[in-house]
């Protein structure tokens, strides 16, 4: 039997196939798609009820509320990233395919962000309106979430990869992941608040962008290593 040297799928097509597969799975599990989005909506609307109805105070806290709600929504959706693949054995197939695991993980993270992160970004100006965020902050909010939420997905993926093999995951995922997301939270909220007081939005977006690039370069490597440990 001749050794298999030709006809091995290219990494690009394997990346697209994995991305498509995950989007297809998400489209068939509608509640997985809707849950993070509804969660974001509900958490953000709890603050005016519980904290204050004063427009001025709401304005003050709205940037933080929106970012924390987005962070928690991203975390909530995280667990489904590798779990079903781990349980049905698809993860072993992914680890044993002749493709670089880095790109396969990146494809899964991208699909995850498209399903759970992007809807939150798109709806955020509406929630911002409810929280009395000043109109001039809508664009900074939208842009900072657009650049920042993929970082949350990439970082969360590391935590999920580490815990996917554990019987009872529960809160450990949050304990591992949330501390890593603090830098994103800091610059994300500053990007929304500070331009109102004359700071330059571009600077904050640049830092968030740098975080995104670093996360794209490094986080999938960490996820891949963690997945190998979890399957071990």
């Amino acid at each position: 039997m001749a050794p298999v040297t030709t006809g091995i799928a290219g990494t690009g097509s394997a990346f697209m196939a994995t991305l498509k597969r995950d989007l297809l799975i998400a489209s068939k599990r509608k509640n997985d798609m809707l849950n993070p989005f509804m969660f974001f909506l509900i958490v953000a609307s709890l603050f005016p009820i519980a904290v204050t109805r004063e427009p001025q105070q709401l304005t003050d806290i709205s940037a933080g509320v929106l970012w924390i709600a987005a962070l928690l929504a991203s975390l909530l959706a995280m667990d489904s990233l590798y779990r079903s693949d781990f349980e049905d054995g698809s993860l072993a197939l992914l680890l044993l395919c002749p493709q670089p695991l880095y790109f396969m993980v990146l494809a899964k993270n991208l699909s995850h962000w498209l399903v759970s992160g992007l809807p939150v970004v798109l709806v955020s100006p509406l929630i911002a309106y409810m929280l009395k965020l000043p109109a001039e902050s809508y664009l900074p909010l939208f842009l900072s979430l657009l650049v920042g939420t993929p970082v949350l997905s990439l970082l969360g993926s590391i935590g999920v990869a580490l815990t996917v093999g554990l019987g009872s995951r529960g809160l450990i995922l949050a304990v591992i992941t949330l501390p890593m997301t603090v830098p994103v939270l800091i610059f994300g909220t500053l990007a929304v608040q500070e331009p109102r007081f004359g700071a330059d939005l571009a600077g904050y977006l640049a830092i968030l962008g740098a975080q995104l690039l670093a996360a794209i370069a490094l986080a999938p490597l960490a996820s891949a290593a963690a997945l190998r440990i979890s399957v071990n």
Binding site: A9, A17, R21, L24, I25, D85, D88, G89
Partner: peptide, 21 residues
Amino acid sequence: RIGVNRVLTPLENLRWNCALT
């Protein structure tokens, strides 16, 4: 654990399997 996703069809499962190799 046979690596067959439960929400996908047999065709979709196998397409992905093949696309990786």
